[in-house]
Design a protein around this nucleic acid. Structure first.
Lengths: 128, 128
DNA sequence: ATAAGGGTTCCAGCAGGTGGAAGGTCAAGG
DNA sequence: CCTTGACCTTCCACCTGCTGGAACCCTTAT
């Protein structure tokens, strides 16, 4: 299939697919007319990358995971290690966001109808 | 204080602080010798930006949040609306991260993590 | 024949920095 | 007084992960 078909089926923009080829993530064949030609394996790989990216894996993670995906003799432990690392990073981000949310919502509550110049909340937000 | 001091105290690299000046987030004074000179207010702003950035806020978000942070007469409907908008965005980010986390942790739990080639994480990622 | 709707290339640019070169400044030690 | 080394300055290039646009070729239908 052409890039438009595989774009639709994988959910990735054609531009992004060309970019992925340019960095060597996929290697579609070329037809007589120069058009890229994608097979089912390419489609699976693209869907794989798209999903991994949406789960927060970097391109380099994707490269590693794809190699493991293609390697029939890989150990699942390798994959699990990468996924667990990602999980840790997600947890850290959630914790940080929750802390920020608490601070901001407190600020909103304190802010209402109060025009005193000195605000302890602002001091807290900017604390070093 | 000089950029090195404020870098250490804010936890931001000196390079990043110069970049923040270049885009107008902070405006440190300059000494006779051309060195940037930072006061406590600059330091607080930098610490604030650093925290907001680490939570996934864009630079433009930071600009808005800083205005909120600096506004001594912030007891207005406008300021409250901005803060509430940011709260909504935080909530959306938390929800996204939680969804990502749920998917990943489910996959990690399913994965044996041993040296066998069968890995549910990769199987799931390869779904079209 | 022509127009629409694919496809191709390359070049530029976004956010948000980071690294390095080339050079100016300052305080301490010999 | 001079040198050394740690600081500071500017500028320009590079990074990730795309995205947009120009300029052009290919295919198909009318």
């Amino acid at each position: 299939m052409n890039i438009g078909d595989v774009a639709e089926r994988s959910g990735l923009p054609a531009k992004t697919i060309r970019y992925y080829e340019s960095i060597g993530l996929i290697k579609p064949r070329r037809g007589e007319n120069g058009y890229r030609h994608f097979d089912e394996n390419d489609l699976h790989k693209l869907a794989f990358i798209g999903r991994a990216r949406s789960l927060g894996f970097t391109i380099e993670d994707c490269r590693t995971l794809l190699a493991l995906y293609q390697d029939k003799h890989r150990a699942s432990a390798d994959v699990k290690r990468i996924a667990n690392q990602n999980l840790k990073e997600i947890d850290a981000k959630i914790a940080d966001l929750k802390a920020m949310r608490a601070t901001l919502s407190h600020l909103v509550a304190e802010c209402a109808g109060d025009d005193r110049p000195d605000c302890p909340i602002l001091n807290d937000l900017g604390r070093v």
